[in-house]
Each structure stands twice: as structure tokens, then as C-alpha cells.
């Protein structure tokens, strides 16, 4: 019983240390703010997802056309809009990136956080 209680006390102490570890490692951090995506990064994430979705759909369409699951007629009907979707996401992504670079280049420019 005594051994069990001693082990239990040891366990509790170990857990307290584990929980306190981030504070023990960095007692006075330069910044304690969470790393979060800023609005620009979030917008870029949405565009990257839209671009990847369109590119994946294009790839699948090409393969399904090759296997015969998608007919020539359907392929012609879908390939154009999908390419436009991917191109539009790419262009917008480029614009966002250019805007970001421009912001970072300005001497007074600050990242939102």
C-alpha cells in the first residue's frame, strides 16, 4: 500500500512537471502569441485548395477519358471549365503573392497577426 501510494505521488509529480514544461523551458519568451495564419495566408490557403481541387479534377478527367469512363463529348464539355477554374485560382494566387511581396518590400509594411 505504501509503495503504491509512493508511486502514485511520483506519478502526480511527473505529470505536473510535464504540464509545466513549456513554462519551465521558456520562463520569459520573446512572444507568447499563438502562431496563427494571418488573413492573407488564409486567403492564399483557400486559393491553393481551389487550385489543387481543379488540377486534381483535371487529372482524374484525363485518366477517366483515357480509360473510356468519360466519353469524348463529356470530356470536351468539362475540360475547358476545369482549366479555366485552375487558371483563375493560379492567377489570383499570383496576384496575392505579388501583393504580399509588395507589402513586405515597403519600409513601413507590417504583417497582420
Amino acid at each position: 500500500m505504501t509503495l503504491a501510494l509512493a508511486l502514485a505521488a511520483l506519478l502526480a509529480v511527473a505529470c505536473v512537471v510535464a504540464v509545466a514544461l513549456p513554462f519551465l523551458r521558456e520562463p520569459e519568451p520573446i512572444s507568447d502569441a499563438l502562431d496563427e495564419l494571418d488573413p492573407g495566408e488564409r486567403r492564399r490557403l483557400e486559393l491553393v485548395e481551389a487550385r489543387d481541387r481543379a488540377l486534381a479534377a483535371l487529372k482524374e478527367l484525363e485518366f477517366d477519358h483515357r480509360t473510356g469512363t468519360v466519353s469524348d463529348e463529356d470530356y470536351r464539355a468539362f475540360v475547358g471549365p476545369l482549366r479555366r477554374e485552375a487558371a483563375s485560382a493560379l492567377q489570383e494566387l499570383e496576384r496575392e503573392r505579388a501583393g504580399e511581396i509588395e507589402m513586405e518590400g515597403r519600409p513601413t509594411g507590417e504583417r497582420t497577426s
Binding site: 505529470c15 504540464v19 514544461l21 502569441a33 499563438l34
Partner: peptide
């Protein structure tokens, strides 16, 4: 609290608590 207030160390501490909870359940 960490998620709501945006506190990094507190968030890490909460994650450690979750990991430690696995260890204690294993015991």
C-alpha cells in the same frame, strides 16, 4: 483559454496534459 486568448505556452501545456493523460491511463 489558450485557444481563445492566443497563448502559445498554455496551448503547449494543454497538449502535454493530453499526452500525459495517455501515460497515466496506460498505467
Amino acid at each position: 483559454f489558450a485557444a481563445h486568448l492566443g497563448r502559445r505556452r498554455l496551448a503547449l501545456s494543454a497538449q502535454n496534459a493530453l499526452l500525459a493523460a495517455f501515460a497515466t491511463t496506460l498505467i
